[in-house]
Design a protein around this nucleic acid. Structure first.
Lengths: 206, 206
DNA sequence: TGGTCTTTTGACCAATTGGTTAAAAGACGC
DNA sequence: GCGTCTTTTAACCAATTGGTCAAAAGACCA
């Protein structure tokens, strides 16, 4: 085995998935260097040599997780439609990002860990595809601003603000929980409502 | 030596400071588990046994850094003055936080790493003093909202949004740089201007 | 200059790390 | 039931980890 390309049997696909699932837990919590193969193997319920039968090594598992992540992470931004209504499009983008923070917090933390550590493994991805996509969407935002559809603000920092405010609920989950109280089920509903107000009205009293 | 309480000689104070400085670099970049004493010793330019002459161990160095951090991290929020002008106070708070992200990015990342990993060492600090401080300031924000000084929004999520948007420039620095281009010196100026607009007017076209 | 206290380090240690190997145990078609 | 291929693991391994120790090297003052 050990060939990552085209896993064949059902059992191979399942085991690889099982390992990636366990690895996501561990890498998201401790970062690449802070995670160990023993931890991952134990969480996956298999032996370490068995784990290494399915993946070439620690790097390979991490790389696979990052590749998958990057593939879907930017989907919400890609969907920003220049032909749609400006406010509706931005609102939808914010909500999609917030949903991702809610539904895929481990992926968000995996990404946060990688960036915090200087993006040693996805630096090229950031400078290339990510930057290109952002530039493209910034053009759309600028057009909307020129048409008077939305306020004239720095479009780059607008995107950063959307990333920051939404991902915060995944990455800083422990802090949010500590402040709001143990299990606030309305958390994401309240966050959505707040972000809507913040981005579309600011703190100006009406 | 090895007694953390009351370091006496000048040389002791300097060496401990040197070590903490090096450790901040390393812990901020790799998190607790991803950092090694050899790394820290090398960056400090001393031998590992020498490092362990000044600190009890890896935990002790990390604990000291966190203690220091927590002591100053919440200062900006503490300064939010209930007797001041609502908008001016919030604006000042945002700017102070942004300044901290600019001037102390390593501290911000150290904190981010700790939270990302589930706050195993400062969980009590979050549930205790942090929560209490936030609750206190939320009361002030609610009063301002009742007086019509600022819009009625969820005050907790408002604080989260300020934390998220400002710390983003320290924690996700690599990503910000990759998107904006290598060395955008106006970055923090633009960020300040944008945040002012976002929080005090939103995206409504004027 | 000698004596004491502080500071520094080379040599070492047990535990853990990522990873290998060879052989055992299953799975599966016949 | 048999032969082959896949899957699993016990037993290792070299390197790195956090940490110790005893002795050397400085610092400082009489």
């Amino acid at each position: 085995m050990k060939d990552a390309t085209a896993p064949q049997t059902r059992i191979q696909r399942e085991k690889r998935e099982l390992i990636l699932e366990a690895a996501l837990d561990v890498f998201a919590a401790f970062g690449f260097r802070g995670s160990t193969l023993d931890q991952i193997a134990e969480r996956a319920g298999i032996s370490k040599p068995n784990l290494l039968y399915y993946f070439e090594g620690k790097e390979a598992i991490h790389a696979q997780l990052l590749a998958r992540l990057l593939d879907t992470w930017l989907d919400p931004l890609r969907e920003l439609n220049p032909k749609g209504d400006a406010r509706a499009e931005i609102r939808a983008y914010i909500f999609r990002k917030l949903e991702m923070a809610r539904d895929y917090p481990r992926e968000s933390r995996l990404f946060a860990n990688e960036i915090l550590q200087g993006a040693p493994r996805i630096g090229d991805e950031l400078a290339g595809p990510l930057r290109a996509l952002v530039d493209e969407k910034v053009t759309i935002l600028r057009a909307w601003m020129a048409e008077g559809k939305i306020a004239k603000v720095d479009p780059y920092h607008l995107i950063f603000a959307i990333w920051a405010t939404t991902q915060h609920y995944a990455d800083f989950d422990v802090q949010v929980r500590a402040v709001l109280g143990r299990d606030d089920e309305a958390r994401f509903h309240d966050a959505a409502q707040f972000l809507e107000q913040l981005f579309f009205a600011g703190l100006d009293p009406r």
